[in-house]
Design a protein around this nucleic acid. Sequence first.
DNA 1: CTGAAAGCGCTTACAG
DNA 2: CTGAAAGCGCTTACAG
Lengths: 350, 350
Amino acid sequence: MKAPVTPRKRSPATAAAAGVVTLEMVARHAGVSPSTVSRILNGTATVSAAKQQAVDDAIRLLGFRPNPVARGLAGGRTLSVGVVTQTISSPFYGEALHGIEDRLEAAGYIPLFVSGHWQEPEERKALEALLSRRVDGLIVLAGRLPNEALRSYAQEVPMVVVGRQLQGPKLFSFGFDNRAGALIATRHLLECGHTRIAYIAGDPAHEDALERQAGYREALEQAGLAFDPALVLPGDYTEAGGLMAVNRLLDARQPFTAIFAANDQTAIGAALGLYRRQVRVPDDVSLVGFDDLAPAKFSIPPLTTVRQSVYELGAEAATAMLALLAGREPEVKLPQPQLVPRESTRRLLR
Amino acid sequence: MKAPVTPRKRSPATAAAAGVVTLEMVARHAGVSPSTVSRILNGTATVSAAKQQAVDDAIRLLGFRPNPVARGLAGGRTLSVGVVTQTISSPFYGEALHGIEDRLEAAGYIPLFVSGHWQEPEERKALEALLSRRVDGLIVLAGRLPNEALRSYAQEVPMVVVGRQLQGPKLFSFGFDNRAGALIATRHLLECGHTRIAYIAGDPAHEDALERQAGYREALEQAGLAFDPALVLPGDYTEAGGLMAVNRLLDARQPFTAIFAANDQTAIGAALGLYRRQVRVPDDVSLVGFDDLAPAKFSIPPLTTVRQSVYELGAEAATAMLALLAGREPEVKLPQPQLVPRESTRRLLR
DNA sequence: CTGAAAGCGCTTACAG
DNA sequence: CTGAAAGCGCTTACAG
């Protein structure tokens, strides 16, 4: 025979102790069962107007905020989505995260940002950490993890991948039309009369870097110009890379009148390199970037570039995630890349 | 008499169903009770070597990862700390967040970033959202919330505030020595022989903006120079603000040979303004910024500025939070601001 | 040193 | 339409 056990309240961490209002208190106050309150909260059932009212009042009166942690445990949802980014502090990712945050928050979800720093092991750790937090979904921005790895994670949780090509049941991917953007940039230079157009590449580990290069080449060939490997310099999407590439180009004594850089950061580094060697932009050489991030507008001279709304990219990724979560098919409509003519390019006079 | 109830397993969201390993499975596998596993996990009790071993093995074998959501509910901790930032996408905050993330992650905590966008209501919403997520602590980066509001939130949860002066039981605050930094910057200009030094201010809503201005003024006065309000232009910490300030300054026909801008972004905007008006940096005017964020190094010309390790700032904020969480007194040692001489300043020749 | 049991604040099949 | 009850995966007073 069991002795009757006196129930005990734990002192620490108890919601009531911390002055927090629980769903149970709301129920008592409204004279209904907790189940009913829960249903009203989740819109899970239609409830008589009277109870609806009573519960609404109680919620307002007590200032009840449902505890997402408990919801997560009980319902298997956490209303959080994990975001694997590469560096929070780069302007590119910063804007994307901003878009993700805005859109997710509007839907009551909270993003958990974790950086992978372009290291496969770190990305893996990040994903694991996020999964152990029981995120409802995962947004992956580029990165170095093999597609296979992503695909297998996608079996555990809905996933949207930005900047790669992946298909699957609860797996959605999309990205900018990098080829189109590069076409536009290169054509702009061609239309200005340039024919010796150098290209400073992005990090070849990124798909988008390859696509941009393909667009550059395509534009050249469409214009009947031979693709000249001597005019293609390696880069890594950083300013330092752009600077170094320009030095190399100048040292090689290859004639050129324009440079298309794989991203704005590269272009800005290139501009500094040119400045140091006394070559003037745009008088001596025209320069085009890619992305149109904040710094482009205030570089000297202001940089002609291709606008990609990175903010929109993030926002659309979040929207796609929300669709997946709701069991719908995501639809993404990203604005087409656009040329933003500023002062770093000009018509070739010679 | 109650009828015996057959227990039922819910199909969805059940850990076991999702192939997830639970603590209970570990316990069974190791032949001990769940309590013991929990204690081992938390280092809460000393356990016999044999059981310790058995549990360790089981954890490894099954690949057990404790569920933070359940831990949060049961133990009142979530191993997460909320971070209220202003804009994730600014270079300043981006670096700070990076520092926070690195340090927190190393301690097993995850940061939840929410932006306030410099709007008091949004900041309040952000804080509420974070609290309802039961974060273990709160890091607040600047913002517009009144000190009183912060202080009252600090009663619910440990808090560290960056860039303000606040004291309290579980409340710690610290920030850069902005006055010292501004002193250094201004002195550098003075040492170069400049006496007509303009100052483009930061957003006056920020304490640090005021401190920087005070440092500027102090340096002037220490040098026996009169503070001239005509040389102080309003700004807002953005490039656009810097550009506008320079235009105003030039239009006012106030003679000046140097500019100290309240932050790098302002300086970069100012540089563009000068470039547009054909005034050369540093030949005609010397220019100094503040912060030494990434763009400063590649601006044209590379910007002389004051180095503040924003990354360190974030990392130290996280460390302080960790101390608070462990019941220790935080100690913060931020590196002193340092002048980073580059190419935007030079000795006055005239 | 260790286990059984209650509890964290919700959600949701069951059973009216 | 609505309630009682079980369960989510842990932690932690209690009681040896």
